[in-house]
Nucleic acid binder design. Structure first.
Length: 463
RNA sequence: UCCUCAAUAGCUCAGUCGGUAGAGCAUGCGGCUGUUAACCGCAGGGUCGUAAGUUCGAGUCUUACUUGAGGAGCCA
């Protein structure tokens, strides 16, 4: 007798008919009548369920007929072709062992629940169709990202989660400390004496691995980090979480166009990988979450992304005649409404917006010859907005020092970062992809809380 | 942090003009020989988010607070 997964059975359609096999899994629904019944079993290996037929010949038939949703079973029987239209085959059970009962207060029903309710039972929601699909796709996307970079010879660098540099400037940070919160040591001025903290200085959770990964870029040429990052922003939106994952590749001897080429290839690669390896899940999203999803993703795979400069983008917005709440003004950042209009109305596909004014961008972005803009590019996609931000980095020591001065940054805090410009610095570029935003884009899910197993947002850390 | 909306049974919701609580699903029990969110019958299940106020009387009106959702800002 073969111990099988439901995935094996579906992927080798019909191959096991008339064979005796065993499976184990959880009850999704039971439909029993007087002398026989049906169990929908999900074993976790596959999006679809296996229909199990059981009848009164089983010694525990009465007990089985009263099974509640969520119970776990071990079943053996013969695979037979199914007379029902909704499944190609089913399992005719000759023994069903109840491994774990589920009590009658099991909160998941055989109907759809609101995402808001399911967030309150984050420990049970992976058992639902939607979350089963989301988190299998999340796993596949993570693998596809690694495979994409590894195939191209990139080195995976584990940048630190705890950082001692307090000047990364990407947002509010979470403090890491072992000092006694009730009674912290104080220095002569009465301030908290961070020299007596664990690291001998103030430390925080990282907001970005970029500065660290650039150092490895100057040794390995092409590198990437892929790990968690933390932002303590008081941000209450569908697209922000306090803990999220980022992919940050960095490529040496490369400019802005090389970065955009790489990012575009990467996104297309990931989408193709997921469409090939999770067709059932993607079909489910297309049917129940976002009916334009597959059309959109196929369109992305087969067409080139748009590339416009910030200045051109402003011109397009101005010429559109659309009334915007915020003014279109050279020098200020694009607002959400502007980004959405560009990617959703004007182009209806992913758009790189390049060469923003230097004053609204980070110090490490390479200054263009016009002395007004920097060599950066944000990738905007319909529905989600910005999912990638990146730039060519400033490799000229004198220029980056001048910009840091202009932005009021303390050069001593960046001494090791600036060393990269002294010791064989090269042209290089890199970007950051918000992992969860990519998942949202690929699945059509609208809220970041529903693509993270246990989301961390303002005032929420129950699980 | 700002703006808007919401909170009634385990879930999803209805509740008229202010007059004292309803449905479907779920759960329990019973029925049913091929079901597909099975179907049919019966039953149990409520401090109407919290606190105060107006009123003879508040799920319904007012205020504050709490929680959630959507949008904005910040960003990925």
């Amino acid at each position: 007798m073969k111990d099988m997964t439901i995935k094996q059975m579906y992927r080798q359609d019909g191959h096991f008919v008339n064979e005796k096999i065993s499976v184990s899994g959880w009850v999704r629904t039971v439909r029993a009548s007087k002398n026989f019944g049906f169990i929908e079993l999900n074993d976790g290996s596959f999006f679809k369920n296996l229909q199990v037929v059981f009848d009164e010949n089983l010694e525990n038939f009465k007990e089985l007929a009263k099974l509640t949703v969520g119970s776990s079973l071990r079943i053996s029987g013969i695979v037979v072709e199914s007379p029902g239209a909704k499944q190609p085959f089913e399992l005719k059970a000759d023994s069903i062992e109840i491994e774990g009962h589920s009590t009658s207060d099991y909160p998941l029903q055989k109907k759809s629940h609101s995402f808001e309710f399911l967030r309150t039972i984050a420990h049970l929601r992976p058992r639902t169709n939607t979350f089963s699909a989301v988190f299998r796709v999340r796993s596949l996307v993570a693998f596809a990202i690694h495979r994409f970079f590894q195939e191209r010879g990139f080195v995976y660098v584990h940048t630190p989660i705890i950082t001692g540099s307090d000047a990364e400037g990407a947002g509010e940070m979470f403090r890491v400390t072992t000092l006694d919160m009730e009674n912290p040591p104080r220095n002569e001025e009465g301030k908290i004496d961070t020299s007596r903290d664990f690291f001998g200085k103030e430390s925080n959770l990282t907001v970005s691995g970029q500065l660290n990964v650039e150092t490895y870029c100057m040794a390995f040429r092409n590198v990437y980090t892929f790990g968690p990052t933390f932002r303590a922003e008081n941000s209450n939106t569908t697209k922000h979480a306090a803990e999220f994952w980022m992919i940050e590749p960095e490529i040496a001897f490369a400019d802005l166009d090389d970065y955009m080429d790489l990012a575009e290839d990467m996104l297309k690669y990931i989408i193709a990988y997921v469409l090939e390896n999770a067709p059932e899940e993607m079909e489910f999203f297309n049917k129940f979450i976002d009916t334009t999803l597959l059309e959109r993703l196929n369109n992305v795979a087969s067409s080139d992304f748009v590339r416009v400069t910030y200045t051109e983008a402003l011109e397009l917005l101005r010429k559109s005649g659309e009334q915007f709440e915020y003014p279109i003004d050279w020098g200020s950042d694009l607002q959400t409404e502007h980004e959405r209009y560009l990617t959703e109305k004007i182009f209806q596909k992913p758009v790189f917006v390049t060469n923003y004014p230097k004053d609204i961008k980070s110090f490490y972005m390479r200054l263009n010859d016009d002395n007004k803009t920097v060599a950066c590019a944000d990738l905007l996609v319909p529905g989600v907005g910005e999912i990638i931000g990146g730039s060519q980095r400033e490799e000229r020591l004198d220029v980056i020092e001048a910009i840091m001065k202009e932005k009021g940054l303390n050069q001593e805090d960046y001494w090791w970062y600036l060393d990269l410009r002294k010791y064989g610095g090269t042209k290089h570029a890199g970007y950051g992809l918000g992992f969860e935003r990519a998942i949202m884009y690929i699945t059509g899910m609208a809220n970041i809380r529903d693509v993270i197993p246990f989301p961390r947002t303002v005032k929420t850390a129950e699980f």
